[in-house]
Design a protein around this nucleic acid. Structure first.
Length: 291
DNA sequence: CAGCAGGTGCAAG
DNA sequence: CTTGCACCTGCT
């Protein structure tokens, strides 16, 4: 892929395997607002970004070369060879359809703490509500990072800035029964038990065990955090939709449990299981497979 | 108005 | 170790 800086914006020339709508709306991320078709505003790592597809290119408005190379390039996973991954996954007949359905998905490399809290919030919840809760928390505990069309956008709070948040405050943000899980995660972070520097050195299985010590973090949430913020592409987050589509496609329509699905995903997709999961999840949800 | 949504903790078998 | 149920909240 080719990247150019025109003195004002960074432009991705004829991006390969990268479609904004597919990447933002495949369920991995909750911090984006659609302005128009293939035109979004998003906040990541304390930065506000307007990004838009223009003709065959993608424009990152007001982003310098340095900022692009230093952050956004990796955030959008642009260093990775998606065609190679897809050609491996497409050897599987049934996955072929799912990959073709949304071949412009890229797995974002999100900030660890934000990802953790976001997926804690996601349990037993719907996407519009999850987005709203995250926005509430950011407004209350984050810092302003910029303005667009008169609206001020806020960074996702750090653990320190949320430390001491009361039940009442968290409930005002509409976290619901998850408030105590958030509190638990914030407290653990404050005790220095969630240092990404440290955790990132651990093998995936151990890291997952550590994450699951946090109240409100089970198998699914832990796997999402591992995949979307720790670069562990071998995990296979298994929610209701993935359960349905996997049962449908690989278990002859018989409902399979999470353990069996993980085993099957590992044998079928190996280190690329996480990518397979995104294609399958997106395909299943949009087409209501098994629902 | 009951039921449910990208799950998880907790109490029981 | 596996199973069943409650759970904030807002929408249908």
């Amino acid at each position: 892929m080719n990247f150019i800086y025109d003195g004002k914006n960074t432009i991705i020339k004829e991006p390969e395997s990268f479609v904004l709508s597919q990447t933002f709306e495949c369920g991995q991320c909750f911090r984006f607002e659609k302005l128009a078709e293939e035109h979004y505003i998003t906040v990541a790592n304390g930065r506000l970004l307007e990004i838009k597809q223009r003709h065959g290119d993608i424009v990152l408005y007001g982003v310098s070369e340095e900022e692009f190379e230093g952050f956004w390039k990796n955030y959008f996973d642009l260093n990775r060879d998606y065609p190679a991954i897809k050609s491996i996954l497409e050897r599987d007949e049934t996955l072929n359809k799912a990959v073709k359905y949304a071949s412009g998905i890229r797995i974002l490399n999100q900030e660890f703490f934000e990802c953790l809290i976001s997926f804690i919030i996601s349990q037993n919840n719907r996407i519009p509500m999850i987005k709203k809760v995250i926005k509430n928390l950011s407004q209350k505990y984050g810092s302003p990072v910029g303005e667009y069309n008169g609206e001020v956008f806020y960074s996702f709070p750090t653990a320190e800035s949320m430390l001491g948040a009361s039940q009442e405050e968290l409930m005002e943000c509409k976290t619901g029964f998850r408030w105590k899980y958030i509190t638990d995660a914030v407290n653990m972070a404050a005790e220095g038990r969630l240092e990404y520097r440290e955790l990132s050195k651990l093998p995936t299985v151990e890291l997952k065990e550590r994450l699951m010590e946090i109240k409100g973090v089970g198998t699914k949430v832990a796997d999402c955090v591992l995949l979307f913020s720790c670069g562990r592409s071998e995990v296979f987050p298994t929610d209701v939709w993935v359960k349905r589509v996997m049962s449908e496609l690989y278990f002859g329509g018989q409902p399979a449990d999470v353990k069996a699905i993980h085993a099957r995903a590992d044998e079928l997709f190996g280190e690329y299981a996480g990518f397979a999961q995104q294609y399958l999840f997106n395909y299943a949800r949009d087409n209501k497979i098994g629902a």
